[in-house]
Design a protein around this nucleic acid. Structure first.
Lengths: 232, 232
DNA sequence: TCCATACTTCGACCGTAGCCGAAGCATCTC
DNA sequence: GAGATGCTTCGGCTACGGTCGAAGTATGGA
């Protein structure tokens, strides 16, 4: 009793449906205003305001004032990682929403996980990168592989630049829909940003799902082939 | 909105202080009766009973009937891992209990994390194992190293036996007090069990903290030396 | 200056969930 | 059987937290 950190506090913060919906919306990685988050949570602006104040006090959220707007984001990627891991856990226990909804398949195929690519395509990409030796996988850890710098330079990413930041380059993130790892970290972020830049894919408004263009999808699948099923 | 798994459900389960205390108590790895858990939660037996029913329905807990006792444990090590990761997150945000209490230092030094060793000593052990090449660390992932099988055989652990189980051999677990990784997985479990078997250490009743005997501590420190500070 | 927009604070309402006393089962001991 | 122990269920109380309407504050634009 009364041992260690207070998990009840953050459990309670995440445990309210309206707050959970707002946090999930912010997993899309974009900064959202209080009004947008109110809609995401299915509540009025006043109620959202009190929730947002609590989430900020609990240091799950950060806010940035810009003119008369107030933009909220997840406080940092530790929050994103925590949420995704809870999602993975919840999915594994069958704690799913009641109605799967029409957007569900798109979400499972490809979605934004805070700032990197998740879903079927996210898992496929990591599998392919491991198979070609661009990334080394040891246990559940990831590191840049022998052919990594060369591979990513071809895609248009300078690994040396990324290494300069204090954020980990490669990080595995458990995918809740696939129940396998996908690539997070600054490299995962850079890859997703590149796909957007090249016009291969785009976000959808108000959702975490990522839509590939026909052309972009062709490029993506060619770039990350799956020859033989790779073991987890 | 309404995307993905329902994190609010499990957030709410963990979010109640009484339930959180009971879950924390079960992080000690031992099966506890409803009466013991009621004491851990600071509530009466009736209230505890309803809480336990909810936790079981949410598949966070498993129960085993034995005579007129009902023993509860965490449903599996995924629950333990989730709780420890939330603890790490909470500790990082300053969500600590109000009064640190006298047991806190012992808890930070060495404690049980579901079924393996955590705290200062847990982190020290992993650092030492990595330094000697018994375990390889890549990113945040762990794997058995070149000198691993030999090292662990000396301690009295047959790695081949452990590999037979479907549970991962090595797994890193973020330590909430040290904010660095310690060793989980079947190997972590086997090591802690060995320390208990050899009489080097013992659990304390009603707490997660692990107390080393003077003799056991000498052996432990000799077995896992820290020569140079190892980078995280 | 005046109004519109974005958001917060106040106040009141209400439902739910936690809580416990008492009673009801179940299991073991004698 | 009778009684003790471990736990669950029932019923009713209470309080906290979520909710929104209304009013208040800040920023931007006309």
């Amino acid at each position: 009793m009364k041992e260690g950190p207070d998990i009840a506090q953050i459990g309670a913060l995440i445990g309210d449906p309206a707050r959970a919906n707002m946090l999930t919306a912010l997993m899309g990685g974009k900064a959202l205003t209080a009004t947008e988050l109110a809609a995401a949570g299915g509540i009025t602006l006043q109620t959202a305001s009190t929730h947002l104040a609590k989430l900020e006090a609990g240091r799950l959220l950060a806010q940035r004032k810009q003119g008369r707007h107030r933009y909220f984001t997840l406080a940092d990627d530790a929050v994103g990682k925590l949420l995704e891991s809870i999602m993975g856990f919840a999915a594994g226990r069958g704690h799913l929403r009641h109605q799967p909804g029409p957007k569900e398949p798109a979400l499972r195929k490809a979605r934004v996980c805070y700032d990197h690519l998740a879903g079927d395509y996210g898992v496929r990409m990591l599998d392919s990168l491991v198979a070609t030796g661009a990334i080394d996988a040891v246990g559940d850890g990831l590191a840049i592989g022998a052919k990594g710098e060369e591979t990513f330079k071809c895609i248009g990413i300078d690994v040396a630049d990324l290494k300069a930041s204090r954020r980990p380059l490669c990080r595995s993130c458990l995918d809740w829909s696939e129940r396998r790892a996908h690539l997070a970290g600054s490299l995962g972020k850079a890859l997703l940003a590149t796909f957007f830049d090249k016009g291969w894919a785009r976000r959808t408004a108000g959702s975490r799902s990522v839509i590939f263009s026909p052309d972009g999808e062709r490029h993506f699948l060619a770039l990350f082939p799956v020859e033989t099923p790779v073991a987890a």
